[in-house]
Each structure stands twice: as structure tokens, then as C-alpha cells.
Design a protein around this nucleic acid. Sequence first.
DNA 1: CTTAAAGGTTGTAGCCGCTACAAGGTCAAG
DNA 2: CTTGACCTTGTAGCGGCTACAACCTTTAAG
Lengths: 150, 150
Amino acid sequence: MRHKRTPGIETTEVAVTLTIGELAARTGVTPETIRYYEREGVIPPASRTGAGSYRQYASADAERLRFVRRARDLGFSLDEVRELLDLAASDPGRPCGGVNQIAHAHLAQVDAKLVQLRALRRELNRLIEACDRDAALADCSLLSALSAAD
Amino acid sequence: MRHKRTPGIETTEVAVTLTIGELAARTGVTPETIRYYEREGVIPPASRTGAGSYRQYASADAERLRFVRRARDLGFSLDEVRELLDLAASDPGRPCGGVNQIAHAHLAQVDAKLVQLRALRRELNRLIEACDRDAALADCSLLSALSAAD
DNA sequence: CTTAAAGGTTGTAGCCGCTACAAGGTCAAG
DNA sequence: CTTGACCTTGTAGCGGCTACAACCTTTAAG
């Protein structure tokens, strides 16, 4: 078993550094994905103050990582996540139009995908409903729809 | 320029063999994708009767390829397409229940994706509507929603 | 006949966002 | 000192293509 590392000079009892596994547990992002994000430049390279060259994280890293995870959950690409992080880290006095723009563009893409998927579903359903499951393969309307010349 | 190959003994004037490019033009599938399908075993290896070892296709190959393209357009995976092709090629007297089953399973997956995507869209839209594009980044509700602890 | 253009051929790498190893290094507890 | 949990890097795979590079073949034209 492993314990909390760096117990400190026992002042306030909280561990200030996290291993990648602890960070993973806190954020719901696996260690392998965290390392992947680092390679991709979505999160900055972790410090390695441990002699054994383990990655070390602080609570702020957990917040940044949660930001990434939530943005990914909303379907933003890693490129978009990088842009959002850059904006979040830039002059807080600037207007948030850039954020809005990224979000709107993404929403438009989601809508486009929805339109596509709904059309696909309609067509698929049409073919399935026409298909009598007890018919012979030779008469299967689904197969013949797939075989049919346009 | 290239011409129709194998003009034959000028009996019925139609070219019976197609190059991969001609097949591509007829089916709307690029030559590279056709070769990919062959590698993946979705379509059988083409014959190579030409001395130069070019692939040669017949009209039946165009039909099979169109079948694949239509199934792909309906969102079936290549695995599912292979299964559908196997069924289409099997005893035509058997009932088409297998086809129906594959199609139903696929429809269920499409529906699941739709549910997911609709939920994502709702959430994204909620965040966007709450976001005042003229607010400062520091007050951007979208960014704070991404940063917020769960 | 030569030659140039428009095809064809294989093999390999890249896209996206992970995920899953293998082979080894390090740490803390017993 | 051993055990075993955890970490490290590097590499390969997923799906379904797409895009080369480097070379070969066919055909029409000169």
C-alpha cells in the first residue's frame, strides 16, 4: 500500500502534492489520459521534484484537469479545450466574446450532427419497418434496399 | 488519355471489365477506399488478369460495392456490413431475421447516440444562454461552469 | 518507336482521443 | 530485504478512412 506522500512538517495536515494516480482519482481522468494530455500540451508538464522523477501535482492542477474533463464531456475537441484554457488564463478584464464564439461554433456542429443523425435514424427506421422479419432473405426489403440501384 | 479497355471482339460494345478508377466513378467510392475494403475483407480480392497486375472488376462488383456504400451511409460498421453481405449471399430461402436483428441493434445504437447528443446539446445550450458575451472573462458564466467544482 | 500523361501498384503514416500493453524504476510498509 | 503497489517511457492498436511516396503499366499522340 501507498500512503500520502510528503506529510510535510505536520502543520495543517493536508497533503499538498499528488501523484498522478491521486490526481486521477480526484478528477475522474485516468493516469494514461493525464499523461496523454501532457504530451498534447493540454496541461503543462508536471514538476518532478521527487528524486525518482515521479510527476507531482497540486490542487490547481486538479482544477485545470477538471476543466478539461468537463469541456471534453461537452464535446469540445482538445484544440477547442486548449483555446478555452488560453482564454481562461488571459487578461480577466477582456470580454468573453471569444469563449462565446467557440461555444457557438461547437453548438452549431452538434446541431449539424443531430440533423444528420436524425435523418439517418428516419431512413433506417423506414427500412426496418418495411422489413418483414419472417420473409425469406430473397424477399427481404432491407437487403433489396441496400442492393438497389439508386 | 485512357480509353475503355478490352474493347472485346466488338460484339455487344459494352466493356465488361472496369479498372479500379472506373469502379470508383460508378460507385462513389474512391480507389483508396476500395483497396482498403479489399484489405479488410469487405470485398473479395479483385482478379488481376491484366499482365500488369491491375485489378479488374465486373458489374457485379459495382453492385456489391454500392451495397457497402449504402450500408455505410446508414451508419453500419464494416463488421456489420460484412455480416449483412454474408447473409445476402447465403441461402435465399432462409428467413431474414438475422438482417432484421442487425438492423435493430444498429437502430438502438443510433437512438442511444441521439439521446446522448440531445442531452449534450441541451447542456451546452444552457451554458451558452447563460453567458453574456459582453461580460468580462472573469465573470464569464461559461468559463466558471467549466471551472466549477462538481 | 519514343514519350508523356494518366492511370495503376504497394507500403506506410497520419487523423482523433484515447487505451493497453511491456519492460523497467521507485517507493513505503512489514 | 522483500513485496507489491505505484510510477516511468515507449510503442501499438482502435475505426474508417485519407494522403502521400516511389514506382510500374497502359495508351494515345508525335
